[in-house]
Amino acid sequence: MNLARYVISLFVILSLNFAIPRAMPGDTMTNLLGEDVILSDDLVQEIRREMGLDLPLREQYIIYWKEILRMNLGYSYHFHSPVLPLVLERMKWTLLLAAPPVIIGALLGTLLGALAGWRDSPSTRLQTFIFLTIYSTPPYFLALLSLYIFGFHLGWVPMKGFYSTGSAGNIIHHIMLPVILMSLFSASRNYMIMRGSVIQERRSLYALYARAKGLYDSQILFRHLFRNAILPIITLIALDFGFIFSGALFIEMVFSMHGMGNLIYSALMYRDYPVLQGSFLIITIMVITANMIADALYGLLDPRVRGR
């Protein structure tokens, strides 16, 4: 049942990907090749024929699916490379930036958020305010500010570039600040969600009964509330993955890192539509995958789902 949902989602998104360049204003071929391509008229005619753009839409659609199944996402004239390997190569680096923060942010955010939802004290209120402020700041602005402070003023971190030598120490040196920022950004979102969830569960009868059994304070939170509170938000966290990933794109742009973010940025500068669309497609597939993992995790943690 759930699998069908994902398959349909994927189908719709791939079809959307077919429709966008054809539905948007402007010449379809320009929309498919990008605006950074200057070709002679003869060549234009030839490519047009080659791409099947003079065929009816229905046949174009079938050709499109054949190409998708052959893992062909088109060719970037700007980068002189097929789109898929280009995107995947960049994706590696973005994942290196985004994956640790997704995990750190999930741990930090749910833990601190649970504690903040459990007990209202001046320190948790301050914490909530700090996370709320991070939550409310566009990630790229946060990145700009910290780059300015820690890079420009204090000189603790390099100003530009990702890997100048490519050694592990060098990569860590470059990636540290972006990873910290991403972790805070991801933690702030999980924090707000988890805090609300614990506040709700705190009022449940099983929490009261746990107290009546003699559990002391945070024992109730960690032995009884935590798992119940995290259940409804596993899916929320997975859906949020798209947001966190988008945040990573912007942070890469600010730090001029070698990843999807800068790929998209230069694709935008040169209106390299194939790269833009290919990136969007790959990101969407990743988000769908994250949701599938979340679904599986949910089933593992909730006996009511597992039992069915």
């Binding site: 009868l205 099983y206 009261l208 009964y209 009546a212 009884h224 119940n228 006996p303």
Partner: peptide, 15 residues
Amino acid sequence: AIVFQNPSAALNPVH
């Protein structure tokens, strides 16, 4: 010790 009136809600659903 106490026994509550709504046992299905007083027991933790995931344990």
